[in-house]
Design a protein around this nucleic acid. Structure first.
Lengths: 233, 233
DNA sequence: ACCTGAACACCGTTCAAGT
DNA sequence: ACCTGAACACCGTTCAAGT
């Protein structure tokens, strides 16, 4: 009963509802900007302080530490999701649209890809999205724990497809590489594995962005098909 | 033709095949130990140097920088995968077993969960696993780019299911919380979302580990069913 | 060929002191 | 109630100097 308290920003009261000068919201907004511009490694309390024309240590009045600030910013991005009305378009299209939106949010905030493995999404916006998914899958016919499993499966797919894609983007540094050059590099790396070479010859490196879209679709259809099959039995 | 070189450890030659005193392998092994014990944030070049009874800066002779070292260690863990023979057990069981093994590897090295979003897995061990998956899916009947898409779908599922699980483990700090306490916390957080409360009443928090195993199975079966359906048409 | 220590430009966070 | 600067214990990395 009186165990350790579960540690998360979301279970503590904010220091104040509002305040005249700086505020939690202002800090979170500035942090989000800095993260989008410079990435997770580019955010420091000192830089953030400077951006707000304040001493780095002033922020500690509004936020317990950097991790807590990141939790707040992380939840912020899930507020950007566009969630379709499943009663209009049907559960399957709604779930697919939500998956696309989720992918978009992560692509728009690449630092989030690194953050998924660090702290769980427990903020109000994340809960809102989870709840919308729940409504969709319940409408689809899932009951009991199966609803949770179905939600986890879909979101897992989106995370797992998007996170390594972001990692790839980072390693190429946003720079678009020449298709032939890329092919040559992959051919060299894949040399010990003859089965892999065939895919190198293919169109993959001419329009990587298009291929990724198709890949995402392929997997999404597969996952939704698979989930639908759970309903039939 | 003469564009920027694609930047990755794997495309450069190591400084030397072997060396008498310290070696790349020794450094990578020590780094892996440190990462497993203290996590990604717990690894510093200084600590690693101390562990090897060397100055922190000595390591820079074997490794260009910390990121490159991490790339090397990251590949190391994919060498721990147990890959079944698909000709013996059939492609579907083989793919499932590989998925379990992948999950195990990440659970065993939680720092990897954070790393997936940072740099792509391009090392020899990662390529080996990818190639094994390729053989399985080709045996299943996939052809052309569909083979790549199927591989991406399965691995995405495993990553996406495992990475947030690790994040959750981190936030609870390895400490196992009382089921009732947990229920109360979730109930509070989920208060604005009536649809979510039902799952709080369920058995989820009594044996979270078991529930996660079942969830993983549920999703894995769904994904494999969905992929199998791509073959039928 | 390999290793070292000093040095530089950074970090997150605490805390006494100010207004 | 809010903000500050100094201070502490850290970082990754460079580089001239040693053996």
């Amino acid at each position: 009963m009186t165990g350790k308290p579960f540690p998360s920003v979301w279970l503590r009261e904010p220091r104040k509802a509002t305040s005249p000068g700086r505020s939690r919201e202002e800090i979170v907004r500035a942090a989000l900007e800095l993260l989008d511009e410079e990435g997770l490694a580019g955010l420091s309390m000192r830089k953030l302080g400077a951006k707000l024309r304040a001493g780095a240590t002033s922020l500690y009045w509004y936020v317990a530490n950097k991790d807590e600030l990141l939790e707040l910013v992380y939840d912020e991005i899930w507020g950007e999701m566009t969630v379709p009305d499943h009663e209009e378009v049907g559960w399957r299209d709604a779930a697919a649209a939500l998956a696309y939106s989720m992918r978009q949010v992560i692509v728009r905030h690449p630092w989030a890809a690194e953050f998924v493995g660090r702290l769980p999404a427990l903020g109000p916006n994340a809960l809102w999205v989870a709840n919308e998914l729940r409504k969709m899958f319940k409408a689809a016919g899932f009951t009991g724990l199966d609803t949770d499993y179905a939600i986890a499966t879909l979101t897992a797919y989106v995370y797992g497809m998007t996170i390594p894609e972001i990692a790839w983007n980072k390693s190429t540094g946003g720079h678009v590489y020449d298709a032939d050059e890329m092919r040559a590099a992959v051919a060299k790396a894949a040399a010990p594995f003859p089965e892999m070479l065939e895919s190198v010859d293919m169109a993959t490196y001419d329009d990587p962005k298009a291929v990724r879209e198709i890949a995402f679709d392929f997997g999404l259809v597969s996952v939704l098909d698979g989930l639908e099959r759970r309903l039939a039995t």
